[in-house]
Deep mutational scan, measured.
Amino acid sequence: MLDDRARMEAAKKEKVEQILAEFQLQEEDLKKVMRRMQKEMDRGLRLETHEEASVKMLPTYVRSTPEGSEVGDFLSLDLGGTNFRVMLVKVGEGEEGQWSVKTKHQMYSIPEDAMTGTAEMLFDYISECISDFLDKHQMKHKKLPLGFTFSFPVRHEDIDKGILLNWTKGFKASGAEGNNVVGLLRDAIKRRGDFEMDVVAMVNDTVATMISCYYEDHQCEVGMIVGTGCNACYMEEMQNVELVEGDEGRMCVNTEWGAFGDSGELDEFLLEYDRLVDESSANPGQQLYEKLIGGKYMGELVRLVLLRLVDENLLFHGEASEQLRTRGAFETRFVSQVESDTGDRKQIYNILSTLGLRPSTTDCDIVRRACESVSTRAAHMCSAGLAGVINRMRESRSEDVMRITVGVDGSVYKLHPSFKERFHASVRRLTPSCEITFIESEEGSGRGAALVSAVACKKACMLGQ
């Protein structure tokens, strides 16, 4: 009897593995994704193909990295998701002549009506938060230079001027797309009239992360975010950046690689679950690469896999709870928690219980395998993109072996128990001629924006502006 049951459990697990095998990517698959990513990057950089390229390769006008001589107080704003952060950054000489960066910050959550109302409502709310922060720190009387981390696709015309191309991540505030974001912020500050600010720089969160990590390690020339969304930036040779005049030196390019796949480059790798996630998203047909990796989508992918296993009578005796059938019910943090389970399955059992399920031991094991399959594919897909960037940098610099540091931020990278190990191992397999160091950014977005502002202020002083 026991043997029969054991055989049935083994057969069930084997069927589960057959279904989950769809998520496995072979090294040849990853090399294919990497080569296609490089081709799209090239198209994004070139003037004649930029418009139709899915990977936009947006110039950021960040050319210099901090040298350690900029000092002063800077205000930093960070808008990239449902939370908005205001930070005071003091850049100065530390002990023994070292450079020191001290920060104080406060988080504000953005109400739904500000995210989806008008641009005026959104930026009025942001300036209200700045006003509140300055009151708390008794700094209303000071006109501070301000660095703005704005983590949406922007076409820069200068370091302090950028046109919002399109909202992502659930934002829909009308009247912002096609307009200068810094102008919208300046107008809102003017409307309030109770404080003055000098907006000197606007950067993407990947750029802010790279600059913040450069402060720790001067070989950091790539910034990457794996959180709600997924994106990367890197220092490109100016001669390859056709959208900006000049051939000397390097400029940081914001790849906006989340949109890779929007022209069909990933079609052969998309599964039924991916198509369902895409169809029910706020932007169907867009940001397809990001939807395979980002935390906004990972939990939902797992939920759809679990429903398939229920329908195949391989999980929960073929019956799903009402909660499990509800879109968004299986949160991405559950994926991390399930994979963090120590082996007694308590954590998995508790999560499934909150979803109205009474799982068996085998159910718990199957749910864990589903989570591992989805998150491992995410790590491997992400590795193909980064390997594409790094191999490109090595080739354009004609280096036999390139040493490089990548600064990384984002909740999936930082909080998932195995993502970074799987990701690092896969990147290294795909970049055999590179020695890569990964560092995690601390308060990256805010500190990085302030350091970019410090560079901009120093330049302005040198130019006598």
Rank of each mutant, 00 (worst) to 15 (best):
L430M: 05
R63Q: 02
Q26L: 07
F438E: 01
I130D: 00
T82G: 15
Q24T: 07
K296W: 12
N240G: 07
T437Y: 07
K39H: 12
R345I: 07
M298G: 01
L144E: 01
M115D: 08
V244H: 05
L243N: 14
K169M: 10
D132A: 11
K296N: 14
M197Q: 11
Y297W: 15
A176V: 11
I390E: 00
R392N: 10
F74H: 12
T431N: 15
F260A: 01
W257D: 03
G175F: 10
R250C: 01
E157T: 14
E40L: 00
Q26M: 03
K15P: 11
N204C: 12
W167E: 09
R394N: 09
E67F: 10
E52V: 07
P66H: 10
N283Y: 11
L307D: 08
M202V: 14
G92C: 10
E300A: 01
R308W: 02
R327C: 13
G448S: 09
Y413Q: 00
M41R: 01
E268D: 11
V55A: 02
E70L: 02
T376H: 11
G261R: 01
D262N: 11
H317G: 14
L25G: 02
D247T: 09
T405C: 12
S383W: 00
E442M: 04
T437P: 00
M402F: 13
T116D: 15
T437M: 05
N231Y: 09
I163V: 15
V452G: 09
G464M: 06
F123H: 01
V16S: 14
A6S: 13
A176E: 03
A232Y: 07
V412P: 03
A119Y: 07
V200C: 09
E339C: 06
H218Y: 13
K291E: 04
R5D: 13
L144I: 07
T437K: 14
V427G: 01
D247G: 06
L134P: 00
D205I: 06
S396C: 12
G261F: 06
N350L: 04
S396D: 03
S375F: 07
R325W: 05
R5H: 14
S360I: 05
S418G: 12
E67C: 11
D278L: 02
I439T: 07
G444A: 08
S353N: 09
T431W: 00
G249T: 02
L79E: 06
Q38W: 13
H156D: 12
R303D: 01
Q323S: 07
V338S: 06
S353E: 15
W167A: 11
K459P: 02
A232P: 03
E70F: 06
L77H: 06
G285P: 02
Y214C: 09
T405R: 08
K190Q: 11
G385L: 13
L58R: 08
H50Q: 14
L288N: 10
Y289H: 06
E443T: 01
R192F: 03
L266A: 03
L58P: 00
I19A: 03
G178V: 13
M107H: 09
D113E: 13
L184K: 03
G117L: 07
V207H: 02
D78A: 14
S396P: 01
L122A: 11
S64T: 13
K420S: 10
E300D: 08
K140M: 09
F152I: 12
A384L: 11
V253A: 03
V244T: 05
R36E: 03
G170L: 12
L58K: 11
L314A: 07
V91C: 15
E245Y: 08
K12Y: 15
D311M: 05
M210P: 03
S76C: 05
D73I: 01
G229A: 09
G175Q: 09
L357D: 08
G175D: 12
V16P: 03
G258A: 15
K90Y: 04
H156Q: 09
K31R: 11
S54T: 12
S398N: 11
R43P: 01
G249K: 01
G407R: 03
L185R: 01
G388T: 08
S445E: 15
T354P: 04
E331D: 15
I163R: 14
E442P: 11
A450H: 08
F150I: 07
I348P: 03
L79G: 11
F148E: 01
K90T: 11
T326K: 11
L122S: 06
T116W: 05
E372W: 12
K15S: 15
V62W: 07
N350P: 02
F438W: 11
G295P: 08
A173D: 12
G385I: 12
M121F: 09
K39F: 05
E67I: 09
L45G: 00
G407V: 03
S441I: 04
M462F: 09
E40W: 02
M393F: 03
H50S: 01
L164T: 11
V222N: 00
T65C: 13
Y125K: 01
L164E: 13
E312K: 07
L266D: 00
T362P: 04
F84N: 13
R422P: 12
D187W: 02
M87T: 04
C129K: 11
E339L: 06
A282C: 04
A379C: 12
I163S: 14
A201Y: 03
T168Q: 09
A449F: 12
G44L: 01
D187N: 08
L309P: 00
V200S: 03
V412F: 09
A10L: 12
R403V: 09
V71Y: 03
H141C: 11
Q138C: 08
G97N: 07
G80K: 15
S441E: 04
E40V: 07
I211S: 03
G178F: 14
V452T: 13
H380P: 01
M238H: 03
F260G: 00
V226D: 04
S321K: 12
D132C: 07
H156R: 13
D194Q: 14
G97L: 11
A456K: 14
F330W: 12
K136I: 09
I225R: 04
T255I: 04
Q98A: 14
T362R: 07
M37F: 06
C434M: 00
K190F: 13
L146G: 14
A384W: 00
K459C: 05
F23W: 06
G388N: 03
D4K: 08
Y349Q: 11
A456S: 08
G170T: 14
M298N: 04
T361P: 11
L386A: 09
I159D: 15
K104H: 09
T82S: 13
L77E: 03
L146A: 08
Y61T: 02
S411L: 13
E52T: 14
L304H: 15
G318T: 05
W167I: 13
M37Q: 01
L357M: 06
G388H: 03
